[in-house]
């Protein structure tokens, strides 16, 4: 698994699609209102939205992903880094950030390669 993270709008998806010559039809975009990942796609984008859906339902995202870890072996997972900025006053947003943190720590350990994208530029950190 390749794990890509970075701030919002940093060009994470564009970078990895160009690097691996992938098309939009190979991308699954997670949605904030549905606990769903389509493991048949090569790229799983906006994982933070999947985690948001889990947060709303009170379900631990990490546990769901761990159950299907073998399906992630040859995948590219992209997640927004929401770890900076002030602590939110909103309870759901606080819980969301914590759950994204737990999920990313687990994925970071499992991934063979981890890349942070800064303003479109990749920085390989694992």
């Amino acid at each position: 698994m390749i794990l890509i993270f970075g701030g919002a709008f940093q060009g994470k998806l564009e970078y990895i699609m160009e690097k691996h010559g992938l098309e939009e039809s190979q991308v699954f975009t997670c949605k904030s209102d549905k606990i769903e990942i389509d493991y048949s796609k090569k790229i799983i984008d906006n994982l933070e939205e999947f985690v948001y859906a889990c947060t709303n339902e009170g379900i631990e995202a990490k546990e769901i992903i761990l159950e299907s870890m073998d399906k992630l072996k040859d995948k590219i997972v992209i997640c927004d880094d929401i770890s900076q900025g002030v602590v939110s006053l909103d309870k759901t947003e606080r819980a969301w950030r914590e759950m994204v943190g737990r999920t990313m720590l687990m994925l970071g350990k499992e991934a063979e390669e981890v890349i942070r994208v800064f303003c479109g530029l990749p920085d390989k950190i694992k």
């Binding site: 880094d81 947003e93 606080r94």
Partner: peptide, 8 residues
């Protein structure tokens, strides 16, 4: 760099 907040 204002892209890593956790707000909606």
């Amino acid at each position: 760099y204002i892209y890593s907040d956790c707000n909606r």
